[in-house]
Structures are given as structure tokens and as C-alpha cells.
Design a binder for these strands. Structure first.
Lengths: 258, 258
DNA sequence: GCTTGACTCTGCCCCAAGGGCAGGCCCCAT
DNA sequence: ATGGGGCCTGCCCTTGGGGCAGAGTCAAGC
């Protein structure tokens, strides 16, 4: 109990503000060693300076308080590394989007090369074996590739695999996605893509990556609207070729219309 | 005035929420083409879809609305590039801090090698020629190097240049810094570092970079406190050697004490 | 023409992580 | 004991919306 430090001095030693320290008290991040029960004055121990400085460093790197609390509770390098990986992924995503916007700005004068040829076609009913799950944007790609691998091993595909997006999936919201491979006969536990009219376009190469792919979806939706159609149901991506074989990735975006 | 689109449809076309669209209206980012004066209903033109989608892309990259407004007002690639440079600098800063924290976590078990030897010494009064300015953290380094170059060209230095930090300078707040080179005689427009006791430590190499340098400041402040001294006035950095000459950077952190 | 269901409006409260201020105690040195 | 500075709580503000309540509106079916 010796050498208790009032909040002002402790703030100077940790370079945190008194206001921030009160907040960290409320949040249980760094509760003072003693709080005078009658006056409410906060007093800190000298050995709380080091955690305080650590919190300040992490806040300087914009680490959320919830993550800091977790790091303090479990002070291994593993959780920190996981956070850093996550952060780097977010940074990379931002950079990709900004590069795309830069190209949009650039090509505005030079005649936008980012157009998509959209057509309509009548498709027959197509039985398939599928798997459906609610996934986050981070789990999206792994889920698709793993599902295709598993399904292809289980049934004999009679066409390229596809994914149906039942909900929008983005940074804020998870959503349901269904991955399927078409089969000749209807499977016992399988479903069927209904017959009907679809608007579609084919994209390849860099156009198949996010955020470029959004342009293709927009083009299909715009085309349908301009031609007096109405979008019905969920859009699907049909994976005609992936980039693994040294070729370019190629996929069809198809959206049922009426 | 043909084909005006109510907010719900426009939201679907741009993948923005109606709530966000109302906010962008208030902020002047994307005001609807028409607002019914009696009902308050918002109606958009089809040619507002493209700007709406652009805003959504930029928001997905976490660009602040104020910056988006500026980008829309001045749609060149220059402003966007400036933003991206700024963003990358921030990302790099976060990564540096997190690498530092990672080393702290790592060395916690293996005996922290991040200690500083602090001593006290009596210094004589030192006249100098100096320049003072309120700078942001981004302008800090350029101001120091430019000031040293200019001052060294103007007077004959009798010792290594230094910087006095009158305020804390960090991401949130600018602060006053003074850069000086010591001179033999007091200059007409010059000032003088007062004689007195200082606590100091010498750091070199990677220790001279942010955020590692914070450890040296903390060590000096802690040492002063533990030895019953009081910090008075502003700390200074004395640039004993910089990294340009193939050598390691080396600097002294000195803080007047009583 | 009327009803109904879907759409839209404004206004309020909420999140993170504090900054800033007001009004009121409290602590310590003289 | 009396200052002056330190500290307390509580309230409003920021960014970029999400969510809800209650009320008003639009369009389609009957």
C-alpha cells in the first residue's frame, strides 16, 4: 500500500489523460489499486505504470479497448500476432479498394474500359448437390473452395461448380451462401436450381476479384432494370475456370429475372 | 426530371442503407435530385447511382465522409494519391508500434534487454542560435533536419545540434519544438540553455526511433523520480550522430531536474 | 372510392474512445 | 484556516451510422 499515486501524476507518468484513465477504470482495463470509498479519489500503484504505458502504446496503434483487455488477460504473443494478421488483411483490403477507385478516376477521361456485356438466357432446371452456411467475409473464400473440393469428391459433377448468395456479405454483416455442383440426377439430399430466365455476364482475370467483381453485379442489375426485368431470388456465380491452372480465372454472374 | 427513384430502390441500387443516404443528404455529400417539399420524400436521379456507388466503395475503404466530399468536389487523382500516402504512413506507424509491443511480449520472459543507463550531470549555460515552431507529428522530422541545416549554415556550431520539446507532440496534438545549434557567443537574436542539473541517457541505433525512444524518456523520468528529483522545464534531444554517415544514429536525452 | 400493406418521414437512443466544460468537493502547503 | 490547485461526477460533442417508435404517404387491389 505504499506510494499510492493520484490520477494526475499517474497520467503524467503513463502519458495517458485522466479522462482516459477513468474510462479504463470503468471498463476494467486498468482499475486503480485503491479508490477512496468516501471521496471517490483514484490511487494507483507504481507497478501499474508499466501496464498503463503498454495500453497507451496499443491505443497509439488504434487497438480497440476490448482487444487490449484480451491481450492483457492472456499476454502471449499468439493473440497479438492474430490481431496483427487481421489488421494487415484489413489494410490490404483498403489498399485494393483504393487502387480500384484510382483506376476509375484515371480512366474517367480515357473512356472507361470497365464495361460488361450482359445477356439473357433461358436455363433448364438443374439438380445439384450443395452445402449452405452463414459465413463472414473472411470465411467466404475458404468455404467455397473447401465445399467444392468436398462436393466434387462425393458426386460426379456434370458442369462447373457455383455459389448462390442468399444475403449480401460484407465487412459489417455475415450472410448465407450455398455452394453446389450440378449433378445428372436429383440427389436424395440435393436441391435444384429452378428453370427460368437469367441475366448473366462473364468476367475473367482481375475482374473476378473484389472489388472489381462488384462492377459485374451492378452491370447485370442495371441491364435488367433498363430492359424492364425484375430481379428475383439470389444471384449466383458459376466458376468456369480458376486461376490455379496457369490460366485466367473466369466466372459467370447469373441473376434470375422476370 | 424523368425516372426519379425513391430512397429504397436507390439504396438497393447503390447497396447503401437508407439511413446512410439520409446522412449523406444532411452532409451535402449526395443530396437527392428532388425532395418533396410537403412530404419530405427523397427522390434520386439515375445518374446519381454512380456517385452513390463510388461513395460506398470509399466508405468500404473507411475513407472519412469529409475526405470523400473533398474527393467528389475535386475529382482528380492527386488528392486520392495524397490520401493513400497518408493512409500508408498511418498503417506503417501502427505496424511499427505493434512490432515493438511484440518484442516487449517476447522478451518479458527472457529478461528485458530494453533498459537505459541514466545519470545526472551539471551543465553550464549554453548560448545557441535556434528556431521554434508549432509542428504536427508529420512535420516534426523535416522541421528538425531543415532547421539544423539552415542554422548550421548561418552560425559556427561549437557542439552537436539539439531539439527542445516544449509540448508533447503526438497523433492527436501538435506542439512547439525548438531546434538549436550551440554557439560560442550569445547571438543577437539567440537564446541560452540555462546552467543546471540534468538527468540524461544516451541511446543509439534502433533505440532512437519511435516508439522505442519513448522507453528512454520513461527511463529518465523514472530515474529522476526514484532519486527524489523533480523534472523542470522541457526535455531535449542532443543529436550526437545521425545515421547518414553509415554509422548508427546516436542521441542524448536530457531533462533538467531539481 | 376506400382500404391495406409497404414505404418513408422525423426524432430519439445506442456504439467506441474519449475531449471539454460546469459545478462541487478535497487535499496540501502556508 | 485559507487559499489554489487537484479531483470528482455528469452532461454534451465528435464519426458513421443501426435500430426502433410513431406518424404520414404511396400505390395497388377490391
Amino acid at each position: 500500500m505504499e506510494h499510492l499515486i493520484p490520477i494526475g501524476q499517474f497520467a503524467a507518468m503513463t502519458r495517458l489523460s485522466a479522462k482516459a484513465l477513468r474510462l479504463y477504470d470503468e471498463n476494467g482495463l486498468l482499475p486503480p489499486a485503491r479508490v477512496d470509498p468516501t471521496t471517490g479519489y483514484r490511487y494507483y500503484r507504481p507497478d501499474q505504470v508499466a501496464p498503463g504505458r503498454l495500453i497507451r502504446l496499443l491505443r497509439a496503434a488504434d487497438v480497440p479497448l476490448a482487444e487490449i483487455r484480451a491481450l492483457l488477460a492472456e499476454p502471449g504473443v499468439a493473440r497479438l500476432d492474430a490481431y496483427v494478421r487481421d489488421l494487415e488483411a484489413r489494410h490490404a483490403g483498403q489498399a485494393r479498394v483504393l487502387r480500384y477507385v484510382r483506376r476509375m478516376f484515371d480512366e474517367e477521361g480515357a473512356g472507361a474500359a470497365m464495361t460488361h456485356e450482359v445477356k439473357a438466357k433461358e436455363v433448364a432446371a438443374q439438380p445439384y448437390a450443395g452445402r449452405s452456411e452463414v459465413v463472414s467475409i473472411a470465411r467466404l473464400e475458404p468455404f467455397i473452395t473447401e465445399s467444392i473440393r468436398d462436393l466434387t469428391a462425393r458426386v460426379t459433377p456434370v458442369g462447373p461448380p457455383f455459389a448462390v448468395y442468399h444475403d449480401p456479405i460484407n465487412d459489417e454483416a455475415d450472410g448465407r451462401i450455398e455452394v453446389g455442383v450440378p449433378t445428372a440426377e436429383r440427389q436424395p439430399d440435393g436441391d435444384e436450381l429452378p428453370a427460368g430466365l437469367v441475366a448473366y455476364t462473364v468476367v475473367e482475370g482481375a475482374q473476378t476479384d473484389y472489388p472489381e467483381i462488384l462492377g459485374a453485379y451492378d452491370a447485370v442489375a442495371d441491364w435488367a432494370k433498363r430492359h424492364g426485368h425484375e430481379l428475383v431470388g439470389a444471384p449466383r456465380e458459376i466458376y468456369l475456370a480458376n486461376a490455379a491452372g496457369g490460366e485466367q480465372a473466369r466466372m459467370e454472374i447469373a441473376w434470375p429475372i422476370r
